[in-house]
Write a protein that binds this DNA or RNA. Sequence first.
RNA 1: GGUGCUGUGGACAAAUUGGUAAAGUCACCUGUCUUUCACGCAGGAAAUUGCGGGUUCAAGUCCCGUCAGCACUGCCA
Length: 484
Amino acid sequence: MTVRVRIAPSPTGNLHIGTARTAVFNWLYARHYNGKFILRIEDTDKARSRPEYTENIKSGLTWLGLTWDEGPFFQTQRLDKYQQAIKTLLDGGLAYFCYCTPEELDQMREEQKAKGLAPRYDNRHRNLTAEAKANFEAEGRKPVIRFKIDDDREIVWQDSVRGTVVWQGSDLGGDMVIARAGDSSEVGQPLYNLAVVVDDMDMDITHVIRGEDHIANTAKQILLYEAFGAKVPTFAHTPLILNQEGKKLSKRDGVTSIDDFRKMGFLPQALANYMTLLGWTPPDSTEEIFTLAEAAEKFDLDRVNKAGAKFDWAKLDWINSQYLHKMSATELIELLVPYWEQAGYEVDLENNRDWWESLTTMIIPNLTRLADVVKETRLLVAESVEYTPEAVEFMQQEGVKEVIEQVIAAISEAPLLEEADGKTIIKNVTKSLKVKKGLVMRSLRAGLTGEMHGPDLIQSWLLLHQKGWDKQRLEKALSLLNQG
RNA sequence: GGUGCUGUGGACAAAUUGGUAAAGUCACCUGUCUUUCACGCAGGAAAUUGCGGGUUCAAGUCCCGUCAGCACUGCCA
């Protein structure tokens, strides 16, 4: 039997980290068993679904490397199948029309709560007489369609993550709505649980891997499978991703869409790697950096955790930095350019590719997120320089002025061609002024970059020199000192 | 209120059928390297496995009780 799994997001928002993680697990499972990974867009909620969200979901999955083998299928294009299924249930006496208004249902639940009872539908319209129906129709009420759920029924399934799960029919909230009230006399739009089951049957889904917030839905859906006489797929409920407070990660937690992570400068491989670790551990649990393909070789549901996993930015950052540090300047530079440009710096790769690559090579170990590149290089990519109070204070120390003067003199005589030239100048200045090398180095750093910390000084200097900016910066520093 | 799930160092977590000193990773601290920051490397601190009983020669692993957190409880998905 070929494994067939799916990711079934609803296009009511951008691709969410929780959905993406579910997609990762499904993708890994499909790849591990050489199965198919299917994308299905659940857009039956017309009021909230938007085409741009569908596009965002598709591009997000693609960016992460979670390519799908079939689809995307759209539920709104399969409405006839749901109507047919609903009709089958209606004809079989397994579903019926319910004429309750939303207000009536609200009131009913309020009363139940007031009595300390669990809110649920009391199945009041399950056995309506033809006359009662006619009366409701005459009132102009539009019915929903409810699927009968036997209170005495016990639903049991073997969950690949959680083991045997038992659910009592009476805990499912009464007969469930499978179709909205229609605008006219025809049957209304299908609801989630119905559409999912019809699709999963139709698409021969063998394993349903989804978040544990769907557990109650699974019980309901199993009943539907049985009503249709279909084979029930294997279910696996994964732990949720939690925020800092231990609650389900939601849009309210700020950055939760994959798009946001991308913009912040996380690499897709790193994000996918981290999501894989959220609730799953490889059998050889010591190595934590791996590609999706490598994870797929080892992935299985039996090592998926049951407890929710808190999202940890520090760990994501570390994983991202690991990927970044392993990249070459050549491949990295393409990813970096947008960040420079967005910050207002002009990147002329056509003419100065070598310069930009040297710069990139130098700051790679300082990068955690791609966006960091602006902060790490802003002192080198702009002609102007600003001196921090710390740098000014340092330069006012005795001897700094002389160092800078001598360095200016040195570079005026001969250009800096390579690192060795810079080292020679530093050595000579150190000797002639009889000061410590550290003073020379730090004077240079302050004068050239305006800061006391940063990437390798001599390489930075070389880069500035190639732009012709080193001398003017040192002169600016000098004039600053002369002003007092 | 009801139902379900979960509970191992700050975070992610490992630990074959109960059996060595409760892995590893991140974060943290120290050292090392460096002009500096970062990276790398080396080391360190950090858990009476939610709590209380019980079974056993032996329990994170089994049993009972208890507490806490979370999820679900829609004509959303």
